[in-house]
Write a protein that binds this DNA or RNA. Structure first.
Lengths: 135, 135
DNA sequence: TACGATGTTCGACGAACTACGAAATTGGCG
DNA sequence: CGCCAATTTCGTAGTTCGTCGAACATCGTA
């Protein structure tokens, strides 16, 4: 089969109003994906292969797909690289305060800034914990 | 053997500090369980068999177990009935604003007060929709 | 063109999940 | 005591999940 026939599927992302709460909750109920979201929250964008998680590339790809289809992240292609970013604005519009609250909750469980997958990415300076605790 | 030999396991509930975010998120990522939590949030307590969900009793029992072990609800035994209640105070202490935010988010998706599993239970008086957006 | 780097898709596998029916347990009542 | 009501536990069926390895696709570069 010619290598040019297979066009990229164009990375389907759900529209903001299409984001499903159950999908989001399910996506967030996995440690690996939660780590990805946390890292992404401290940085505007990041290439798939640079995340501090130790799973096989195929597994990681699977997780990104789950995250993307749930509406939590968006992915942009640049050359042979794929950059992921948290859809903070869309999430905030669809489910106000949800991301902040969940992430803040995770921070309390011990998954804080210096947990195990620390955002060593480079900056990691300010944990950016400006979470809007309702308390 | 006397039927009194089999003592009730005493319904294990996780301590407040033991409540795991992933368990909570996973528990909430199921429609049936979300419905249970929503109903429970409008009422202080309710018997297991009186929930507006259409699944077999055994299945319902399973969901209650998941909910209880995740720390979302507590169960109290009275005669041959088991009453469930949302652990609002514990949840609020463990993960401030989480329950409110998630429930408010679900309300936005169309699972509002009069969705499909309406609180026909009988009272359903005050919906208590004081959804506090942590915004 | 060949090669290496980055990622995805496919197929498989074991574990966990959801669902159900049947049986068992417990308490209230005639 | 015998029976019904409320629930749980057990066993099972089918599905979904998380993970991996192997193969494939794309881009940049030698």
């Amino acid at each position: 089969m010619p290598r040019s026939t297979r066009r990229r599927p164009a990375l389907a992302h759900p529209a903001t109003e299409e984001i499903d709460l159950f999908d989001v909750l399910h996506a967030l109920s996995d440690p690996t994906r939660m780590t990805i979201v946390r890292v992404l929250r401290a940085e505007p964008e990041r290439a798939c292969g640079t995340f501090p998680v130790d799973v096989a590339p195929s597994t990681l790809s699977h997780h990104f797909k789950v995250l993307r289809e749930s509406g939590l992240i968006s992915q942009r292609e640049e050359a042979n690289r794929r950059f992921s970013a948290l859809r903070t604005v869309d999430l905030e519009q669809r489910f106000p305060g949800l991301l902040d609250t969940v992430l803040a909750a995770h921070g309390r469980t011990g998954g804080g800034p210096g947990c195990r997958d620390g955002e060593d990415g480079g900056r990691g300076g300010g944990p950016g914990m400006r979470g809007g605790e309702a308390g």
